[in-house]
Design a protein around this nucleic acid. Structure first.
Lengths: 148, 148
DNA sequence: CTTTTATATTTGTATATACAAATGTTGTAA
DNA sequence: TTACAACATTTGTATATACAAATATAAAAG
């Protein structure tokens, strides 16, 4: 990925700016490809993330706040994300008996099955995205990203 | 920025996945802070980008396709981005006399003035974002990002 | 025990983005 | 010169996201 080529400029971009733009371009590519990989399954990347978090709960239900703090989105939209998954039958939603303010979200069996298929597609896409990077390089990248 | 801390998990995330998530988190932080820096000016990051591209044209008008290919958005939305800037008086839009399919967008004097103020805010935010990175580190980061 | 405050989620709404189709213009081939 | 394809932009619409306010429950204070 060449920054100057993508944004079609011949001028030399200052290093700081270039870094910021570069990160944004890479992120765009990543989300585009991941969303494309999920398209056949009819779910968005965010919906996939919710399912993945729920599976990580090992049959323990997650409430909305928990889901929300593990992803990058606003509470109100997490509600609507779950709405979508509910409509597809991939999750269950029940009010928590011990604290009726909370809701408990769990992944359904059907959800687990489709998630497994999605996982394959996502993993493959992720591997492909970082395909040009060696293990050492990826480690360096993670260390550099930690500085943000 | 610690990935595990942000997404609140104790589990070790596989390197490939961690890299992808890491990039997404950093990008989120960047766009959040840049948008916050622009908030006092009442423009979005995308609108700012349009203005910056127009200034780069050195009083030469840019048509929509040109604008569009230098940023990461769809044509239809570029039209609407320009609508917003037009309403604020920061750009002019005229149909190209030599080819009436095209439109010519130019930045107004008012646009140039506000852009200068925005520039300061953005530059400052950008510097702050990469503040923990040295020149060498930034260069390494750019090289690694090129591999995507 | 009532009022207040804090917590958890939802609703309403504005803005942003993605995708498909429509419009108007230009170039080109029969 | 007319019909048709290509180009540049716009419109319509669905979905996604951000922000503020509303609802409902629980906990704490008086």
């Amino acid at each position: 990925m060449n920054v100057e080529e993508i944004i079609k400029t011949e001028k030399k971009i200052p290093l700081v700016q270039r870094t910021i733009i570069h990160l944004s371009l890479v992120n765009n590519k990543i989300t585009e490809e991941l969303n494309a990989a999920l398209k056949p399954f009819g779910v968005s990347l965010q919906q996939f993330n919710v399912l993945r978090i729920l599976r990580g709960q090992k049959d323990q239900p997650a409430n909305l706040s928990t889901l929300n703090e593990r992803m990058v989105t606003k509470m109100s939209n997490t509600t609507r994300l779950v709405d979508k998954l509910l409509a597809k039958g991939y999750v269950d939603r029940e009010t928590c008996p011990s604290n009726r303010r909370k809701v408990e979200i769990t992944i359904t069996d059907e959800g687990k099955i489709v998630l497994q298929a999605m996982d394959k597609a996502i993993t493959q896409t992720e591997e492909q995205l970082v395909g040009s990077l060696g293990k050492k390089e990826m480690e360096s990248l993670n260390i550099l990203l930690d500085k943000f």
